[in-house]
Computed example of a mutant assay.
Amino acid sequence: MKLKILTVFFLTFFTLTAWSQDSVRFEPNRFNDFRLVPLPAIGSNPANGWLFGLAPSATWRMGDPSTTHLSNFVGNILYTTKNQWIFSSRSTIFLNEDRWILVGDWRYFITSQPTFGLGSSTPNEPTENPAQQGVLYGEQQMDFSWVRFYESILKRVGDSKFYLGVGYHLDVYSKIENFIDSELPTELRFSHDYYNETNGFNTERYSISGLSFNAVMENRDVAVSPYERNFGLISYRVNPEFLGSAQSSTTLTLDYRHYFPLNPKRKRHLIGLWGFGNFLVSGKLPYMALPSIGYDMFGRTGRGYAQGRFRGESMLYSEVEYRFPLQQSKDVFGGTVFVNAASFSSRGVNETLLSQINPGYGVGLRVMINKENRTTISADYGFGQSGNSGFYLNINESF
């Protein structure tokens, strides 16, 4: 494990050295301060194994720098050692004077992932669920394809920091197959299949299609790597059958982040707080659409656990991160220490929110490859309970 971590850091720094001096800058014409970093992606995390490919990142302004936030785009074209293909693009675009915000999250995955059942008490190793006789509990592998198209538009309210808007959201899961590498009795049913059959969903393909109604407070100084102030989101989503959902449902997402600089002269020295909640309000969601760790827009919740390690009808998540510069006067290198906690509810196993909490903690390294736009490479190692851990290599700060 130590050799693997050292290898990852070596490859990371080799990549950074090669590319940090060669980010592409376009002279201002239609866009101001446009910078593209065509970064090769070399990384590892528990859900995907080793990843190789491209992770282009871009920042620019759509108006006067004094009144317009930096827009940002992060893409991925990746192949993994678990034979997965990952194509994604995520963007936050601020139009002139921040009067409109466009938020996009597009994905196409041919992938696999372990699932462990519902709730916060699932074990690592597969076994029979004591609360659901005849149902598997613990690690169960899933192969599936996933298409996502999310796009939201938000209008600024007067000259305030508040925005109101709507969005369209589509997730399609298909070619779903379950299997385990275990000698457990074959008559035990997979958690995914049992939940879907019990709740009237197909076990091989399903979709969720709906509209969201959103209220946002955008008060961060730079959205990709904030030094101060705060951000808030309330999103109520309606997924009716007539728009293509397998069953009708409504959900509520709450997201709040606050940044406290500890040194006015070195604002990179700060404490960041993050609170996140995702709740099934009414109706039913198919298994893979239920709230889960690591399924926020940029996949940053739950460092210390694999994506999808915990899942339930509702989730609560919180994180505290201490960020600090590693150089006396320069801002190229920085570090971080973080702790987090998550909790999931599940009616099927009679678990309520906060009845069980899954903590995580870890350390990280930051390399700022563009000081003006704060484009940053983040490398973190996180630890969870019961032997869970993972390495995470990403573009920009975790939140």
Rank of each mutant, 00 (worst) to 15 (best):
K175G: 02
F201H: 11
G304I: 02
E128P: 13
E187P: 00
S121P: 03
R366L: 01
S355Q: 14
S346V: 04
P46I: 15
R229H: 09
F31Q: 08
L188P: 01
E128R: 13
R268S: 10
F279I: 15
H169I: 09
A18T: 11
N32P: 01
T59Q: 10
G210I: 07
F391P: 01
L78W: 06
A47R: 09
N83M: 14
V238K: 05
S346E: 00
Q132M: 14
F383W: 07
I180C: 09
A131E: 12
P56M: 15
V337S: 06
M217Y: 10
E151Y: 13
G75Q: 06
R90L: 09
P123T: 12
R311V: 03
G119H: 04
I5V: 12
F13C: 09
L233P: 00
R156C: 01
S355T: 06
P240D: 02
F34W: 04
D64T: 06
E321W: 08
P38W: 04
N219T: 10
R205M: 03
V281D: 02
Y392I: 10
W85K: 11
S112F: 09
L285K: 06
Q84H: 08
I271D: 01
P46M: 14
S23K: 13
Y227D: 08
S245W: 00
I271C: 07
N32D: 08
N373Y: 06
R266I: 10
F26H: 08
I208S: 08
S212M: 08
G158N: 14
E397I: 07
T12Q: 12
I5R: 13
I208Y: 02
G117D: 03
R303C: 00
G275R: 07
T250F: 11
N358S: 11
N340I: 01
R323N: 03
F87M: 13
K2D: 09
Q356N: 14
N373Q: 13
Y392E: 05
P291R: 11
F344P: 00
S89N: 14
L354G: 05
R309A: 00
R237F: 12
Y287H: 13
M368D: 00
N214P: 02
V37R: 01
N278G: 01
N48S: 08
L211C: 06
A215S: 06
V147F: 04
N350T: 11
F242V: 15
L184E: 03
G75V: 03
L54T: 02
Y305F: 05
G134P: 07
L136R: 03
E187Q: 12
A47N: 15
W100M: 10
Q84G: 08
L273G: 01
L326I: 10
G272R: 02
E177I: 11
G360W: 02
L326H: 02
Y227E: 13
E321K: 07
A131W: 05
T122C: 04
L285M: 09
T376S: 03
M288S: 07
L154E: 04
I86G: 01
K82E: 03
R300G: 01
D255C: 14
T59M: 12
D331I: 15
E183K: 15
I5H: 15
R366G: 00
S249L: 15
W19E: 05
F298Y: 06
S57W: 04
D331E: 15
P65K: 14
I153A: 13
V339T: 12
